[in-house]
């Protein structure tokens, strides 16, 4: 038993194993509390809800790794979704051809990327604080979105985009597949590319990284640029799932993305954190969210629980660090 545990820990790392055990406890707990929890319907709905949150979390993760934050993620996603909606609407709405969809997706990705790029340039080259820059970008994008939509919903899209939000491929929900691809891509970027490596390093010490010959300004710019691209992807998935776009949709996700990153072991000061544990943390949060929902918890109570949970996670990490240091 002890040996198996040791083996598992070596394979996965202590943090992933801890999260895995936590997940098992949560699943068993809700399984007993609500018979519907382990039903196919509930598992299915979780699988469709997770991706948009997951994509936004990936967009939040890399800026945190570099010691920053991107507060504009949800509105970047909204504006990108709006771009796609606009292209579809101006090409016939419900009857828009697939070519319009392809162009719309490219335009949406371009808009999200551009928003990220602007933030990245200001943060890296001007040296302004990431919290401020992303905050200002968020206010601007929200204003832009409200200006364009006058606060309303945009809907009426062609039938064929529905599967992106609702369909299955080989029995797996398509949005989940998109998240899976994005997560694997992010994992490869962070663990196997020069850019990812540089992002970790500058998160720990930007000057020492620059002295070692890394183009830190370009790296930082790209971090926010890619973050914007990922937001755009989330915006597209959101559009297809709700069959509409509303500016402000998913506003509450910011907290949960930050929570997922910290629950997944990301260092709030930057430099350390991996994709896999963060995805595990996301699954846990989704399970918690669905479970609370099934138990009849109010949406606002859930918000409060997330806030308290974030504090609890940080306090437990603090206790953990103190304990670990004493041993050392």
């Amino acid at each position: 038993m002890a040996k198996t545990y040791q083996k598992l820990r070596d394979m996965l790392g202590a943090e992933v194993l801890g999260l895995l055990m936590f997940l098992v406890v949560v699943v068993i707990g809700f399984g007993f509390a609500s018979p519907r929890f382990l039903s196919a319907a509930n598992l299915g709905s979780m699988a469709f809800q997770l991706p948009e949150l997951g994509l936004l979390t990936l967009a939040m993760l890399v800026p945190i790794l570099t010691g920053g934050l991107n507060l504009a993620i949800t509105f970047t996603a909204n504006i990108s979704g709006l771009t796609l909606a606009w292209v579809l609407q101006s090409n016939g709405g419900v009857d828009a051809p697939t070519s319009a969809f392809v162009i719309g997706v490219i335009a949406a990705l371009a808009v999200g990327t551009l928003a990220g790029f602007v933030m990245g340039v200001v943060i890296a080259y001007v040296g302004a604080h990431p919290i401020l820059v992303s905050l200002a970008m968020m206010i601007f994008l929200r204003g832009l979105g409200e200006f364009l939509t006058h606060g309303g919903d945009i809907s009426g899209f062609p039938e064929y985009i529905q599967p992106i939000g609702h369909g299955f491929f080989l029995g797996i929900p398509i949005p989940l597949l998109i998240l899976l691809f994005a997560a694997v891509g992010w994992h490869l970027m962070l663990s196997r590319t020069r850019h990812g490596f540089a992002a970790y390093m500058l998160g720990s010490n930007i000057e020492a990284t620059r002295y070692s010959g890394i183009h830190t300004k370009r790296t930082l710019t790209l971090v926010y640029t890619f973050s914007g691209t990922m937001c755009a992807l989330a915006g597209i998935v959101m559009l297809s799932r709700f069959n509409s776009v509303r500016v402000g949709h998913g506003e509450a996700y910011i907290l949960i993305t930050v929570l997922a990153c910290f629950l997944g072991g990301v260092d709030p000061f930057g430099g350390f954190g991996r994709v896999f544990p963060v995805v595990m943390a996301l699954v846990i949060l989704q399970v918690l969210s669905s479970g609370l929902n099934l138990l009849g918890a109010n949406q606002h109570l859930a918000t409060a629980v997330w806030g308290l949970f974030l504090i609890a996670v940080m306090v437990i990490r603090w206790i953990w660090n103190r304990f670990a240091r004493k041993q050392y």
Binding site: Y200, M201, S204, N205, A208, Y211, G271
Partner: peptide, 19 residues
Amino acid sequence: TLGLVQPQSIADNIVLPVL
């Protein structure tokens, strides 16, 4: 503060300039 990226690993510090 300039020679090494302190909290990171030995291996990562060695390969940093030769990625």
